[in-house]
Amino acid sequence: MKAFEQWVAFQTIFQREVRRYTRIWLQTLVPPMITTGLYFVIFGNLIGQRIGPMDGFAYMEFIVPGLIMMAVITNSYSNVVSSFYNTKFQRCIEEMLVSPMPNYVILLGYVLGGVSRGLAVGALVTGLAILFMDLHIHSLWITGLVISMTAVLFSLGGFVNAVFANSFDDISIIPTFVLTPLTYLGGVFYSIQMLPDAWQWVSKANPILYMVNAFRYGFLGTSDIPVGASLVLIAVFSAGLFAYCMYLLNRGVGIRT
């Protein structure tokens, strides 16, 4: 397949993904706004005023980056896992397998679809945050880079989950039992400096902590973790997952007999 044809095929998959989640916007774009809006109201405004400052910032300011990140992680992951699993379930994955598209085009199309939903939800939630506080961004390019890289990483994670999923239960197990706990324990609502040393070390084994802190640095200019280390970690995980996804696709795991 020529480069131009591959580009057309990539656009086709990407546009189909965007069409899919915008068609069902009530299920994909609105719920994260409601959930995050409730966090802003309850933890930011009501409880946050009693908690006082965190790392020198108002509690609302401190939690907003983590909550945006949480929405991006959840949505980029769930977009790819549900969309790709559905193509398996409805057997329309065969449309892609009989076509001459290289496997990496399929993967990139799905990943960019997941990233676009993650970033769309991130933008909507950020817009919502502006209603509750004056939003200051310390470094726009770090904010953009971290959120984009994180969306790529979790889109890839969603793809792996979908490849192995054999039922609708299988696509909700990882988000429920792994992603949500790791996100809550990833420093969204607190600074790990508040924890005893031993728990700080345990927390540092949680990759989401690095992403939340790097993203918070983009907003506030403060982080529990060096930003460079976070970026390297996200890049290494993403490269590893991309290679693994390609291996699965080339072997036909979960998609070919």
Binding site: M1, K2, F4, E5, Q6, V8, A9, Q11, T12, I13, R16, R19, R23, N86, T87, Q90, R91, C92, E94, E95, M96, V98, S99, P100, M101
Partner: peptide, 27 residues
């Protein structure tokens, strides 16, 4: 290939299903 069982997205429009397949071939 025209398979034995229906294997298109049940929620997509007819024209989109055909045009999307064309795009997958780089048209």
């Amino acid at each position: 290939v025209v398979p034995q069982e229906f294997n298109f997205n049940q929620f997509e429009r007819v024209a989109d299903i055909v045009a999307t397949q064309a795009g997958m071939y780089g048209l």
